[in-house]
């Protein structure tokens, strides 16, 4: 069933999950604890699984014969429509956890809403994802509290990481004509409706972590239109090089 709007929406959701998974994988063998290595790779695996289902669905609704691999490995930077927040460099562990908190507190109400999508395939993917991102939010919450309400050094670095990624979170709640059409059809979640949960969840965690809500009004944006930050090209180069150097390669 060809449906360009639904295809593009699934591409946005799939790119968010794929790019975040790739960033998390950069922590492999570099985490502060062995258990944390395992935890981050588990989170990345969930996200990679979600992105595989979403990109497969995006390809099916596009109707041009592209599969998940074509979409993940053979598109260039301006063709990716993930939010800029997920592509930001990891920085230190505190900054990574700040990013995880901001993304997961958005993903939970997003997938909850999409469980009721009028697109049955998207609703089925949401039914799996919603259980997984609940873990992701718990994980990020416990680290942000532990580091924020930890030592003087961990508090400073947690606040610094949060300040750096914070402005990028607001792109997640932007609307555009595509979303307006899909919300009207009952396919997509209305991004503005996700923000109250996100706000209260994040502010509650930050209060417990003795961290301040950043006050900047700067709101970078453009990921959904293919505009990305400088580091994104390097991420894609690493992610795509094997597939492009050896087309059709399999394990």
């Amino acid at each position: 069933m060809v449906d360009p709007d639904v295809s593009q929406y699934c591409l946005r959701l799939g790119d968010d999950a794929l790019v975040l998974a790739q960033r998390l994988c950069e922590w492999a063998a570099r985490s502060p604890q062995l258990e944390e290595d395992v935890a981050l790779m588990n989170l990345a695996l969930d996200l990679l699984g979600q992105s595989r289902s979403l990109l497969t669905l995006a390809g099916a609704r596009e109707g041009a014969g592209r599969d998940e691999d074509d979409l993940a490995f053979l598109r260039d930077e301006p063709d990716f429509v993930n939010a800029q927040l997920v592509e930001l460099e990891n920085g230190d562990f505190g900054r990574t956890m700040a990013k995880q908190l901001l993304v997961s507190a958005y993903a939970l109400p997003l997938w909850q809403a999409l469980c009721g999508s009028t697109d049955a395939d998207l609703a089925a993917i949401a039914g799996k994802a919603v259980k997984e991102v609940a873990y992701h939010l718990d994980h990020a919450r416990s680290w942000v509290v532990r580091l924020g309400d930890g030592t003087e050094e961990s508090h400073l670095r947690m606040q610094k990481g949060l300040d750096e990624v914070w402005p990028y979170a607001f792109e997640l709640f932007e609307s555009d004509p595509l979303l307006d059409r899909l919300v009207a059809r009952g396919v997509a979640a209305d991004p503005a409706a996700l923000q109250p949960f996100w706000r209260s969840c994040v502010e509650e965690v930050l209060a417990e972590a003795t961290l301040s809500v950043p006050s900047t009004d700067w709101r970078p944006s453009g990921g959904r239109r293919g505009t990305h930050t400088e580091s994104f090209g390097y991420l894609l180069a690493e992610m795509q090089h094997l597939h492009r150097s050896h087309p059709g390669v399999s394990w």
Partner: peptide, 8 residues
């Protein structure tokens, strides 16, 4: 049916 989305 898969257990988790990314179950390898």
């Amino acid at each position: 049916t898969p257990t988790y989305s990314g179950c390898p």
